[in-house]
Computed example of a mutant assay.
Amino acid sequence: MKKLFLLIAILLPAAPMLSAQPIVPVQGKMVTREDYQRYEQDVVKTIDWLQETPWKQDPQLYSKATSFLFKWIQGTPTITMELMPPLVDLTDQNNKLMASFIGGYTKYAIQHPVYLKEDANMAAVKALFDKYRAEPDHKKDSDIEHLLKLEKEGTLKDWVINEYEKVTQNQ
């Protein structure tokens, strides 16, 4: 009984660290629609981990998690991302923010199977903002700072919708 309590006392503090790992399938086979659907919850968990984990905490695992997310979003037949150039420009100073942007879009699309691309882009921008604010190693970016100001003024959604309309009109 003493050994059981000792084991629990040792493992209990480590439990949050064990559950906080991203789900990155090592031998993940993604070919069919069902393959991609099978990994949706793993993708969401990985997105959450990428959002919560500082870039320098575990760079190797961060890279693997990002690669898994990018591989999944590039191949999934259920989600089509339309990246607007002004939004992609938000990652030019901090390229690791692209994982937050794509993750925010992807998570929104998974959780809302019928969605508007403007809403998914808005979720992507908010995820990027959250990571930018929380990341101790980010470089200051005037484009992001400008959009943070628009968010504070309550006009960010209008900006996202206007930029989306510009892109769709040019297609």
Rank of each mutant, 00 (worst) to 15 (best):
K2A: 12
K2S: 10
K3Q: 14
L4N: 08
L4D: 10
L7M: 14
I8S: 05
L12D: 10
A15T: 15
A15C: 14
L18I: 08
L18C: 09
Q21T: 11
P22E: 10
P25A: 01
V26S: 15
Q27V: 02
V31N: 13
Y39A: 01
V43G: 03
D58T: 13
Q60N: 08
L61R: 15
Y62D: 02
W72Y: 10
I73W: 00
Q74P: 02
P77H: 03
M81T: 06
P85W: 13
P85V: 13
L87C: 04
T91S: 08
T91R: 07
N95E: 06
N95F: 10
K96T: 02
L97K: 02
M98P: 00
M98Q: 01
A99M: 04
S100V: 01
F101I: 02
I102P: 01
Y105H: 02
A109R: 04
H112P: 06
P113V: 00
Y115E: 01
E118A: 08
E118D: 04
N121K: 11
M122T: 12
A123M: 06
A124V: 08
A124R: 10
K126T: 11
D130G: 05
D130Y: 03
K131P: 00
K139W: 06
K139R: 14
D141R: 10
D143I: 09
D143N: 14
E145M: 07
L150T: 07
K152P: 09
L156V: 13
L156T: 11
K157R: 15
D158W: 04
D158S: 06
Y164F: 15
K166W: 03
V167N: 08
T168K: 01
